[in-house]
């Protein structure tokens, strides 16, 4: 669900060790990279490496049918570009039923059927879905080993609150890191630096830095990144001057990392 805010479709690359996703948004300003290791699943088996092309917008709609206590099983046949999504419901309401959502992979061209939206009214049925997928090419090359000048670790809930609050007041934000202070400032279109409204930084913030950095970013993207905050208690902001910001949420068996290109020439 976090990814679908940024990218509409992407390939889940599956191998014996993990499931990975990496995709850019349409404007090429942000990139999301996700990895979930095999131990993060109750059971996991991958007989051969394969990409699962998924329309994330549609997948998110399917996921809305699940409740927190549902166990979700993903199965893809070896010979077909088909993914089978089954909710093994434990709640009393859902117990007599389970869903089997199926969709074709990247080669499929059939449109997403309109009856999908009626799925909640068709509980006793197996519902088979064909979801058309774009031919967007994901980035498959691994990222270079970037060494950042600063790393700020803070509670993810605080980061979410800060960017949400500031997004009510402006479209951009400047993040400055010095030895003892992280300053996240709202930028006004015609304001001078002295007019910036500083947000307080809560306890639990760790600053690691080699060099002072000051970067400007679009708040809209940061707010979207922060929707991954429920996945991890902490978020790391990795920055160097004039390079993309890395917002990293690590969880027990994987991570979601978001990259955001800065604004330059402020």
């Amino acid at each position: 669900k976090s990814c679908s805010i940024l990218v509409t479709d992407a390939n889940f690359e599956c191998n014996e060790e993990n499931i990975m996703l990496q995709a850019m948004d349409n404007s090429h300003i942000a990139l999301v990279s996700v990895e979930i290791g095999a131990p993060g699943f109750t059971s996991y088996r991958c007989d051969r490496t394969m990409p699962l092309g998924v329309d994330l917008t549609s997948l998110t709609k399917v996921l809305r049918c699940a409740k927190d206590e549902n166990i979700c099983t993903l199965k893809a046949a070896d010979e077909a570009d088909v993914l089978n999504l089954v909710y093994d419901a434990k709640s009393a309401f859902f117990s007599p039923f389970f869903f089997a959502f199926m969709w074709h992979g990247r080669d499929a061209s059939s449109p997403f059927p309109p009856f999908f939206l009626l799925c909640s009214a068709l509980l006793p049925l197996f519902i088979h879905l064909n979801i058309s997928l774009s031919s967007q090419t994901p980035i498959t090359s691994s990222w270079p080993e970037t060494k950042y000048d600063t790393r700020v670790t803070l509670p993810s809930a605080e980061f979410t609150r800060i960017v949400r609050d500031l997004s009510q007041l402006g479209e951009h934000v400047r993040i400055e890191v010095s030895k003892e202070v992280v300053r996240i400032s709202k930028l006004k279109a015609k304001s001078s630096a002295e007019d910036e409204d500083n947000d307080s930084i809560p306890t639990g913030v760790v600053i690691e830095m080699n060099q002072h950095v000051s970067l400007t970013f679009s708040l809209k993207y940061l707010v979207n990144f922060s929707k991954s905050g429920s996945l991890s208690g902490e978020v790391q902001l990795l920055m160097s001057n004039d390079v993309p910001l890395l917002v990293a949420y690590d969880f027990t068996q994987g991570y979601i990392r978001c990259y955001l290109a800065p604004k330059i020439g402020d």
């Binding site: 850019m24 404007s27 090429h28 300003i29 942000a30 990139l31 090419t137 980035i139 498959t140 090359s141 990222w143 270079p144 479209e171 951009h172 930028l187 279109a189 400007t216 679009s218 390079v243 993309p244 990259y259 290109a261 800065p262 604004k263 330059i264 020439g265 402020d266």
Partner: peptide, 14 residues
């Protein structure tokens, strides 16, 4: 407010 950069400038794309 400055120019919005894209990621292509910073990272190699296939």
């Amino acid at each position: 407010m400055g120019r919005q950069q894209t990621l292509g400038k910073f990272f190699e794309m296939p």
